[in-house]
């Protein structure tokens, strides 16, 4: 995945985060992760997970938690 694609995924994920942030720090990560799970194709999810593994630069805190949660969900499948 190119750097541009990675930046784009981070931007998209953070955008999702801005909507769910209003649900509060407890619920938002799960809601964001659920959105990613339902609407992003596996390669996009793999891309954002790879970005997290590489340090997760520029991911907003709630989104970072969501991607971490997504990693757990993916590992459990």
């Amino acid at each position: 995945m190119s750097e541009r694609s990675s930046e784009k995924l981070v931007h998209m994920a953070n955008q999702i985060g801005t909507f769910f942030a209003s649900q509060g720090a407890e619920q938002a990560p799960a809601a964001i992760a659920d959105h990613l799970r339902k609407f992003w194709d596996p390669r996009m999810r793999a891309g954002i997970l790879a970005h997290l593994e590489a340090g997760g630069a520029d991911l907003d805190p709630l989104v970072r938690q969501a991607v971490e949660r997504l990693r757990t969900m993916t590992a459990a499948r």
């Binding site: 995945m1 190119s2 541009r4 694609s5 784009k8 992003w40 194709d41 596996p42 390669r43 996009m44």
Partner: peptide, 18 residues
Amino acid sequence: SEPGLRIPNMLDAAVDGI
């Protein structure tokens, strides 16, 4: 059982060569 690519995602993936 996995969601697929949306149009803009298809185009991004094409630029990425996949």
